[in-house]
Design a binder for these strands. Structure first.
Lengths: 190, 190, 190, 190
DNA sequence: TATGAATGAGATTTCATTCAT
DNA sequence: TATGAATGAAATCTCATTCAT
């Protein structure tokens, strides 16, 4: 087995075990067994359990950011944006499944300060890009004037809802639920 | 010191330490010191660290449920409901502050299966009550026909937003943001 | 078993095991077993293996310093001094046996910088006191003019010789050898 | 790079690293890097870390023995012997510097029993040769009757003093100190 | 012959829980 | 009832050695 394959095995195993057991309950032994390598091998690639966790989270976070960014780039109206967001989210949930839940439902500040800062910066960037897009739509009268910060938060909530009902509630009508949320966000409850 | 006072001290200390350090990093020693009692004394009231954690979470969860329930009970229109939700949430955030964040941003299933089930039931009850209320408003044509599950999720998002921007982002325009979200939920982005 | 007894057991066991195995080869498990306590108990008294080692060495070093100091205090001539040094050294070798060898024949700088500094200061103090005494004897024409530093070194060599031939060579004519060395130091080889 | 050069690089690197870090703290990795060879290459020349250490020590020990032996061979009086000892020791200290301190100030028995035996034999041979020389001087009335064992120990102490004050105390008046010690050994303190 | 990625036994240290006082 | 000293299972990480290339 060549070098990149080992690292991929380790990262993939780390993903599974950290996700199922949480950071503290995860044992390096389990990750090693899951990856089919010796315990010491992991330490050829990272210096500590914490660093391995950070590597894993960074990979997964980028999946979520990518969905948002790709949806923004190609969209010229809010409807088109939501449409792409919907499809890309469903695709990502299908592909990366549960991996994402860690990113959304865990307070990572207690695991690594460095990671928390990185996450905050990342989140800030996503917020900025969403806000820019929303401001653009407001200038074009595509949507009415609202606080971009709040609108951005609600757009991210479409992702949150998808993850929550798929990963934690195990429901299978995710698309329907997301369409329902988008509908309310566009037209309101009244 | 009489018995009830000791238990209150322990619970209060547990609150502080679990919140600051997370479940795994919290040491029984620290809780004992914070409560001003001997380590062994804690085991007069609970059988394990896990049980102490469960006791603490249950207390805090009820704050959140209470806000929702009180807002439901007194409201005869969606606007009145949101209005009460806003005020009660702000009051709770002020009073119980960060305690709530644990309930929202920690995956409790890894700490205790029993707790997770309890949380799921609780959440289900909240959802049911919100759905019933929303169905009532739909029957009265106070709001248009939407999926109650999704609407309930979005209503809870008003709480989520408040907690996130207060506890994690330390912003001080929480009321404004919540009003903005409620406005979007009522009238939509268009 | 009361608290001071446990600590004495631990210190005594540490003495034995560190002496027989050396710092690195010594396992905390062995010390615990030797002391008849649990491994964790050791960490109630010291924070680390290194600190335990430092505590042990400091105790033993003081035995050696004490021999020198007591011999100095009571002596008014070089012969009287050597006489007392001889007897006190033999007594100490009898009582504390091999414990002392560590102090003389190990480069402690690699185990703990803090300890090395402490040892250097200690050594400096011993040297100072010996030099003062020797200067006094020189002023009184009890001995001829020599470099106090060298004479102090040679006096300490009486201790070194005793430890070497007893601990490492296991000879039993230690007193005779020490008397021989003192004789040469006083009268010279010629 | 040809074979003998590799072995010389390894031995030289082992010297540096063992000396600076001590046996246990020395890593085979560091020696390999220092020698500019792969880690596995070292195992072409020795079977284990211990064997590499033994090889290194044996080389260094011979420097010390050589000084004694060369001083013995050419000397026909105790003064001539000490004179040569002085010059050869200073030369050796200059050339091999700190390497020797390991031989004097480390308890090698804990690293390798085989090595300790070898050292003891070596030491015994040195002692024998010194004793023979001293006996010869006593027969010729060049020096008075003393225990040869003790006199031999004190002669070796001239080397010890040189190493101690140069390597550990970093003093630069080594020659003066050694002359002072030789003077006391010859004429005594009285 | 030369390499260095891979290995896993074994080290130190932590901390929830117990129990003698 | 209240205590905290004592415990030991279990965690992370190291590094001498091997072996496929």
């Amino acid at each position: 087995m060549t070098k990149p394959n080992k690292w991929q095995s380790i990262l993939s195993s780390a993903n599974d075990v950290f996700l199922n057991c949480g950071y503290e309950k995860t044992k390096m032994d389990d990750i090693a067994v899951g990856a089919g390598v010796g315990k010491g091998t992991i330490y050829q690639y990272v210096d500590s359990k914490e660093e391995l966790f950070v590597q894993m989270i960074k990979t997964n976070v980028s999946y979520v950011s990518d969905v948002l960014m790709e949806a923004i780039e190609e969209s010229h109206s809010i409807e088109a944006f939501f449409d792409r967001l919907l499809h890309k989210t469903l695709f990502m949930l299908n592909k990366h499944g549960e991996k994402i839940s860690f990113v959304i439902y865990e307070d990572l500040s207690r695991i690594s300060n460095q990671l928390q800062e990185w996450m905050a910066e990342n989140q800030e960037k996503d917020m900025q890009r969403l806000s820019t897009m929303l401001q653009h739509f407001m200038d074009q009268n595509d949507i009415r004037d609202v606080q971009p910060e709040v609108a951005a938060w609600l757009i991210q909530d479409v992702l949150r809802l998808g993850i929550y009902f798929q990963v934690f509630r195990k429901q299978d009508n995710i698309e329907e639920l997301m369409r329902g949320e988008i509908d309310i966000l566009l037209k309101g409850l009244k």
